[in-house]
Simulated scan of single mutants.
Amino acid sequence: MAKTIFITGASRGFGKLWAEALLQRGDKVVATARDLSTLDDLVNKYGDNILPLQLDVNDRAADFAAISKAKEHFGSIDVLINNAGYGLFGSIEETTEQEAREQMETNFFGLLWLSQAVLPVMREQGQGHIIQLSSVLGLVTLPVLGIYNASKFAVEGLSETLAAEVKGFGINVSLIEPNGFATDWAGASAAQTTAMPEYDAVRAAFQAGLTDDIFGVPEATTDAVLKLIDSENPPLRLFLGKYAQPWVKQTYEGRAAEWDSWSEIANAAHGK
């Protein structure tokens, strides 16, 4: 049965790939972008099955208006995919207040506003699925991506809480956690701080770890996303890529060992 999907950041990368895959199989898609011309090819190809909307997700009022327009146009919203976001590259010390705020505005607050906006629609329907594009970097971290890491950690905490709050309304929440993929996320879509020479060695070590094999093929993610959307009992978290789960598992095993080594002191701090 065809579904109505609202997806942000559909101008390029995962967003456009997934939007087209959904349209190809007959779903209705509300595709948002800051520049609507980037959606012209999909509009020309899929006609009335796509509703293109210009949207800056940082604008809360515009987010609510876009959800309202989508509901009015197609009659329902079965799935919200909060895909819009970008990476800010640079050490924490280098990051300006404006850079940090803009990263959080798009990656966290935009996602929050759209989640809030769609909830009344989904509650009225008695069903829905909110899919948040997080990252493996919402569970583990890399140097020179500190503010991006923080934004995705925030998305993880928000979405896990939201899942518990809305389950009783028939609404599911899922976090997609990709490892690196060969999109333009680290290229044209990225922002860069002004480099301090003191962090040259940190940057060099980061770059040295970026081997070609680390980056997955974006087109290969489509089947997994379609299966997630179609699942009657979708998971809270879905890794994408062969490196994400082993990396997180190794990191959490290390954390558990450290917690255990300090457990006596931690328990004593309870006081009774």
Rank of each mutant, 00 (worst) to 15 (best):
D184A: 08
E94P: 09
G128Q: 01
W113D: 01
I50Q: 01
H270Q: 15
G110S: 08
K69Q: 15
V144E: 02
V225F: 10
Q132E: 12
K45C: 12
L139S: 06
A268W: 07
Q250C: 10
V217T: 15
Q250N: 14
W259V: 15
D213H: 06
A10T: 11
S76K: 07
R34C: 09
G138N: 05
R255W: 14
T251M: 15
Y46N: 14
V166H: 05
Y148M: 03
K227V: 07
L42V: 05
V118C: 06
L133E: 00
S68C: 13
N179Y: 12
E93I: 03
L23Q: 09
N49Q: 13
W247Y: 12
A195I: 10
E156M: 08
A224V: 11
L162S: 04
L238P: 13
A244D: 09
G126T: 00
L114H: 04
S37A: 13
T95Q: 06
F64I: 12
V30I: 10
T193Y: 02
L240A: 13
T4Q: 00
V202T: 14
F153R: 03
S68F: 08
A164I: 08
A117G: 12
T141Q: 07
L17W: 04
Q245A: 15
N172S: 13
A100H: 08
G187I: 01
A31T: 02
I77V: 05
G13S: 04
A191S: 13
A21L: 06
S37M: 10
S11A: 15
I265N: 10
A163K: 10
T96W: 10
L39D: 01
V30W: 02
A19V: 06
T222K: 12
T95E: 03
F181N: 04
E160Q: 13
Y46P: 08
V173G: 07
Q132K: 06
I229H: 00
P197M: 01
A163M: 10
G216F: 00
G13A: 06
D27N: 15
V57G: 02
D56M: 06
E258S: 12
F181M: 10
G241V: 03
V43M: 12
I92T: 07
T95M: 05
N82Y: 02
S76V: 02
F64K: 12
V225I: 14
L39W: 01
V155S: 00
N44C: 13
V118F: 04
